[in-house]
Design a protein around this nucleic acid. Structure first.
Lengths: 221, 221
DNA sequence: CCATCTTTGTGCACGCGTTCACAAAGGCAT
DNA sequence: ATGCCTTTGTGAACGCGTGCACAAAGATGG
């Protein structure tokens, strides 16, 4: 029986072995003292805990470059995700296969969600359409949304939204790059400042009192 | 002079006002007591600190769906990023314009990096090509890499790599979704487990001792 | 010029997550 | 069966980041 010790795993993952053991302990006691963890059993338990053993049908709305890239992305299937449908507002796209799946028109959205029991939606539309799409998804029963559009979505309680900003990662790289290139080492406020900067820009557009600003574009030129 | 108080900004950004003030204090004292922060000046200072006032030429390597999506992504320009070149290994792509920029062949990679003074590279190639592209970028002088390919890149010291895994976000959503759907509330180990799971899978492939495993595919079916 | 009011900047305390360290548990050899 | 060795599981301590609370600073009005 192939096994791994917490020490080996910790070294491989670059974390502390005690933390790793404590994390595992929350899932129950799967290890054997003096031996380690049964690799196969451990992998299964973690997979189950993370929901990888379930089948998660997802819909992708907005089949532009990004939507197509997501549809073709190989990483989804192995993680338990199944692209149940591709949806686009452009009638010219309807029926056209992307990644082997025919694109369907937005009109079908509610039916698709319902028929497939979809609870996770991916929004890859332009910013302008995102909120509206979001609302239709939620109304149709979707409770988790992955948002690639550069907008902050507002959703009712009980719905999870995760926003992926493709430029934020570049921003972080540029920040470190700037540090390498000299400069006096000053701040460490990092991702935090980002959100705050956005709020500041939003507030700037208002008369002076601006809670709940929702302007997504952060910096003026 | 339009100003904002830390209280207003904190409300807008959804954070604590004291934390916000403390963060700002690391950049220096730009506020005026009894008044607040001069919006324009604050925005400028934060922009400067984050490197938004600089011009960052970037190259995108691998012009598939994802590369094209990135090239078309509007968010870059406003954050100080300029797509200096698009590079692809397919000779058929050469010269073809994407997002108004002609694609160039991989052969030109070193020259492009050098001519444009590029220090940030984006890898959107298939997994198999990523490491090789990475090495060429580094050799040509790139010191920051944004990796969309599902591989762990190994780079020399001094080079920053950020990996964007498009499925990890879905995974997190699925995890919460699973929680909503009942289950006994157990673990809270989350992103941590992800890395550890990867390490476990890597170790499974080895005889038993497996530090520094680099197998990227996480879970077996 | 002084009093008052607002808001910043920051010392201090609390709480949480990480790490240390060790007792308990199980395997294995004798 | 017994003792030793390895590795887990976890109580306790440490450290760091967040939030509280207040003194200092500056504006504003009388």
């Amino acid at each position: 029986m192939p096994t791994v010790s917490s020490e080996e795993l910790a070294a491989a993952a670059g974390v502390n072995s005690a933390k790793l053991r404590k994390d595992f302990s929350y899932l129950g006691s799967y290890g054997t003292r003096g031996v380690g963890y049964d690799v196969e059993y451990l992998v299964y338990q973690i997979s189950r805990e993370l929901g990888l053993t379930q089948d998660w049908p997802v819909v992708i709305v907005g089949i532009g470059n990004l939507g197509a890239a997501l549809a073709n992305y190989g990483g989804f299937a192995s993680r338990g995700f199944r692209v149940a449908a591709l949806i686009d507002a452009d009638p010219a796209m309807a029926g056209k296969p992307v990644a082997g799946i025919p694109v369907q028109h937005t009109d079908e959205l509610e039916k698709i969600i319902d028929d497939n029991g979809v609870s996770i939606g991916v929004i890859a539309t332009p910013a302008g359409a995102a909120q509206q799409v979001c609302e239709r998804l939620v109304a149709a029963g979707v409770t988790s949304i992955l948002n690639f559009a550069p907008t902050v979505l507002s959703v009712p309680d009980g719905v999870d939204v995760r926003k992926v900003d493709l430029s934020i990662e570049l921003q972080i790289l540029a920040f470190h790059e700037q540090r390498k290139a000299g400069e006096e080492a000053e701040a460490q406020a990092d991702a935090a400042l980002e959100a705050e900067a956005g709020a500041a820009a939003a507030a700037a557009g208002k008369s002076g009192k601006g809670p709940d600003g929702d302007v997504p574009a952060v910096m003026p030129a």
